[in-house]
Design a protein around this nucleic acid. Sequence first.
RNA 1: GGGGGCGUAGCUCAGCGGAAGAGCGCUCGCCUUACAAGCGAGAGGUCGCAGGUUCGACACCUGCCGCCCCCACCA
Length: 889
Amino acid sequence: MARAMTRTLPKIYDPAEVEPRLYRWWEKRGFFHAEPDDPGEPFAIVLPPPNVTGGLHIGHALVASVEDAMIRHARQSGRNAVWLPGTDHAGIATQNVVERLLADEGVSRHDLGRERFLERVWAFVGEAGGIIQHQHRRLGTALDWDREIFTFDEQRSRAVREVFCRWYDQGLIYRGYRLINWCPRCHTALSDIEVDHVDEQGELAELRYPGSDGADGVVVATTRAETMLGDTAVAVHPDDERYRDLVGTTVLLPLVDREIPVIADDHVDPEFGSGAVKVTPAHDANDWEIGQRHDLPAVNIFTEDARVNEQGGPYEGLDRFEARRKVKDDLDARGLLVGVAPRTHSVGHCSRCRTIVEPRLSDQWFVKMTPLAEPAIAAVRDGRTRFIPERNAKTFLAWLENLHDWCISRQLWWGHQIPAWYDRDGNIHVRRTDPTPDEVAELGLQRDPDVLDTWFSSQLFPFVNLGWDGEVTDTLELRTWYPTAVLETGYDINTFWVSRMLMAGLSMMGDVPFRVVYNHGMVRDGEGKKMSKSFGNVIDPLEFIDRYGADALRFALLRASTAGQDAPLAEEWVEGARRFANKLWNAARFVLLAVGDTAPALQEPAPDALALEDRWILSRLEDVRTDVDRAMEEWDLGRVARSLFHFTWDEYCDWYLELAKLRTGDEAQTADGDAARWTLRHVLDQAMRLLHPLMPFLTEEIWRTLHAADDATTIQLSPWPAPAPSRRDAAAESQFAALVEIVTELRRFRSDHALPPSRKISVIAVAPPARRALLTGALDGIRRLSGVDDWGFTDEVAIGGPLGHVAVDGADLYVPLTGLIDLDEERARLQRELERARGELARARGKLANDAFVSRAPADVVQAERDKLAEWNAVAERIGAQLQTLFGE
RNA sequence: GGGGGCGUAGCUCAGCGGAAGAGCGCUCGCCUUACAAGCGAGAGGUCGCAGGUUCGACACCUGCCGCCCCCACCA
C-alpha cells in the first residue's frame, strides 16, 4: 500500500480493550447527561430499578439492551433524551437476603435490634448498588448517572410519605382488620400478587360433625382438616332440601367440643360433596365473607409461625401440617373421619421464600383500589397509554377491573415506615412530619412499626425521578420529561409495577406516567427453557461480556427478540454475535485500507460517476434505512437487528466489498476508484450509525477511526441517517440481481464440477443485444467473483469441443469443457437443471390453466406468472438444446 | 373455571394472501491480498391435524390435538 496508513485497526476486534476505554470517555465527556432545556423533543425512559439484592441477571441485560437502544436512537435522532437510573430498596427481598447472611453468622435480626439491623442492610445495599452500577457500565448503558436515585433515599422518602398522607386524607388509605396473606416464615403480610399459586396433591377429608342432640349431624369436606379447630359454623345452601331441618340447629364440633350453628348461605354449592361446608372465618377468605354475613365469630387458631395456638387445646404447639395429620387421626379414632380422597388443589406460596402462605386475620393498612383504577382504565381504553404488544392491554384491563384493595403494610424493618402514630386512646395520627417529643409525651404517641410494601415507593418512580417529592412538585424536569416516552419492562411485572405507576401517576400528576408500555419477553435458554438456578442454566451477563463483549451479548439478545415473545439465548448466539462484530471490524479495516488518506478529500461523486454496484448498495442502504426506521417506530428491535445483520454481512461485505476491491487497488487513482472509495466509506458510516443503538462500542470505535474524530466527537451525537429517496434505484437493484444470478450459477457450475478457485474458466455468452449491453458494465465484477479469466460474447456458439451450459435469466453461458471436467458429470448436472426447470414450469402452467385465476387475480399477478412461465420455458428449452448438442438426447 | 401465547429445516426462532427464510448444526470444496471468529457451494420442511373462506392459504375463520403462561374466593 503506497498511501501512508494513518489509521489502522488490529486484525481481531478486542472488546475487552475497546469497551471499558470508550465507556470511561463517554462518561467523562458527559454524553449521557441531559438537561431539560437542551434542544430537541423530550424523550425520557425510566430504568426499571433493579432490586439491590445482588447483581444483575440476564433479564436485566435484555432490559438494558432494549432501553439503551431506544435512548441512543432517540438521541441520534435529535431528541432531548434522558435515561433515568435508580435502584429499588426491595423491602422484603433485601431483608430476606440480609437475614440469610446474618443466619450464616448465627445471628437473627432480633438479636441485633431494629436499628443495628438497618445499619447492616444499608451497608449491604451500598455494596450491591455498586455492583449493579458496574454491571450497567459494562453493558454500555447511556444512563444519566447524575440523576441516579434510590427508592429509599431522603428525597424519595419524603415523596412516599407525602403520597401516603394525601391518599389517607382522600380516604384512599385506611387501616382495617382483615384476612390477609401471611407468610409464616417472613412474618409479614403480603399483597395478593405476592402469592404464587401452585397446584399440589392433597387429600380431601370428609368429616362428620354430630348433631348437638346426638343425631347424625352433617358431613363436611376439607383439604385442611386442622382448620376445623377454628370452625364457627356449618353452612348449607338455603334451597337444599336435605338440610332444611338442620338449618337453625347446632352441631358439635369434635375434638374441641364447641357447639356451632348450621346456617344457610347462597355461596354454598349444593352439588359439591355433601353440600355442607365447614366455616372457618379466620382462615379462609370465603369463610370470612360468610362469617361477615352471618355475624359469626372468627377464631384464630394459629401463631405467627403457623403453629396451633391456645385455641387449639391439645393441639397447641403443633405446626399446621402436624396438626392436620393428628386431627385426621383423632377423628378417625372416633369414627368421625368419613372418607379420604386424593385431590389436587391450588396452594399459595410466598413469592419470596416459597413458604405456603396462611390466611391470617390482622390489622393492616390498605389502599382502596377502585377510585385509583378507574382513571387508569380510562387511560388505557382511550389510548393515552398504549401497550406493545397490544394484546397485553386486554390482560391488563381485566386485572384492573377486578382489583381487591391493596394491602400495603409489611411487618418488616427494611422499608419506608408508615407515618402513623397511635395515641393512648387508640386514635390514628397520620402525619407529614414526625411528632415533637412534647406531642409524644402529651398524647402517648407510638409509631406504627410496620413498613410499606416496596411497590408503594417504586410506583412513584416516573415522577420522583424527575424531582417530585411532595414539597417540590413542579420542576423543569417534570415539565419537560413527564410523561415519559416509553416504559419498557417484562410482562411479568405489569401488575406489580406498571399498573401502580399508572394509578399513582394519574393520581399525583394528573397525567399518565408513560405513553407506551413496551413489554419484552422473558429470556430463556437455548432450548427454550426458563432460566432458573435449579436447572443450572442461568447466565451471568458479566461472564458473557468478558468472553464475547457487551456488543455481542446485546446484539444476540436483541436479534432473538420479538415484542412480548420470550427470547431464547444460548452461548452460541452470543458467539455468533461476536463473529458478526468481528466481521464488521474487518470490513472497517478493509475500508480504511482502501480509502486511506484520501478520505477527507473524497467528494460525493456525480450520479453518472457511480458504478452499478455503487448504485445498488446505495439503493439497498436506503431500503434498509427505511425498514429500520419503520421497525424503530414499531419498537421492533429484533427486526432492526436482523435487517442490519443481513445488509451489512450478506450484501455489503459479501458482494459490495468484493466488487470494490477491483476498483480501489493501488493503481486505481481514477474517478471510478474514488467513486468506489466514497461509497465504501459512506455506506460504512451510515451502517455504523444505524447499528449504533444496538452495538454502541464497536460502532463508536469504527466510526471514530473512520472520521479521525477528535475527543469531543461521538457517533452518539452524529445525526441519524436521513431519508434519501433519490438513492433508490430499482434498475440498479434488478441489474445487480442479474449479476448475482450469473455469479451464483457459475459458482454452482464450478462447485458441481469440483473446480478449485485457482482453476479459471472461460465463458462464451449468448445474449440478446440489450442484455449484452447491460452485462458489459458488470463484467469485471462477474469475472472476478466467479473465477472467469476469459469472457466473450457471441451471437451463436461455434466453438470446437464440448461446452458446458449454464442458463441464467435472459442469457446462455457456455463453458469450454475440454481438459476441464468429466462430460458425464455435466450431463447429470444438466439433467438436474432440466428437472428443476420443468418443475417450475409445471407449477406456472397449472396456475395459468386455471381460468378462475386468470380472470380473478389482479392483472399484475397474472402477468408475473406469465413471465415466469416464459422464463422457465426458455431455460428448459436451452438446457434441452444443450443436452441435444452434447449428448444427442 | 376464565384469559392469553406457542406449534414453520436436526435445534432455536423470524416471516407471510400470490415462487418456503435466518442463525446454529450437517455435507462438499477453498489459507481468493478485511476477516479461517473467514469464503464458496449444498443437503434438509406435505409450515401440528381436520374442515371452511378465496382464483389462490403456511398465512384469514372454525373445530380439534399437543406444549406453555397468567388470572380466579375449586370447601
